[in-house]
């Protein structure tokens, strides 16, 4: 049996996972997300990555970004490497894609702040 803590929401349910043949039996979850989380965590753990990219704009030297989905836990640092290579030279709106298909994960890195608003709000 494996013990896990669900990270889907701030409640953080304590989960117990047991394999019955090919099927995982999950206990301790208060919602259905918990069951899926536990199965993913034991087979293919994934996380979203939140970071910043450099910009050429003095007033806003860094712009916050995140992956628009979850990437494999083990490739977080590869994703970070790609994010750290970016130097943003154009004002972007919130939600705009900054890196497409990062590290061939099928996931994009998107802006989470509105650079156009940030540059105007001076």
């Amino acid at each position: 049996m494996k013990n896990l803590i669900c990270i889907e929401c701030p409640i953080g349910c304590g989960l117990q996972a047991e394999k019955n043949g090919e099927q995982w039996i999950i206990k301790g979850n208060r919602c259905r997300k918990g069951e899926q989380f536990a199965i993913n965590e034991l087979t293919d753990p994934r996380r979203s990555v939140c970071s910043t990219v450099k910009t050429i704009f003095k007033e806003v030297p860094r712009l916050s970004v995140r992956t628009d989905g979850e990437v494999p836990l083990k490739s977080i640092f590869e994703v970070m490497e790609q994010i750290n290579r970016v130097i943003l030279e154009r004002p972007v709106h919130i939600g705009e894609v900054i890196i497409e298909n990062v590290c061939n994960t099928g996931i994009n890195v998107i802006a989470t702040s509105d650079l156009i608003y940030l540059l105007e709000a001076k």
Binding site: C9, P10, S48, C50, S51, T52, S64, R66, I94, T112, S113
Partner: peptide, 18 residues
Amino acid sequence: IHDGFGLVRFKEKLTGPE
């Protein structure tokens, strides 16, 4: 800039700036 904001209100995992 990390995510996890707004789960109660928007049922989404948003970052703080979002």
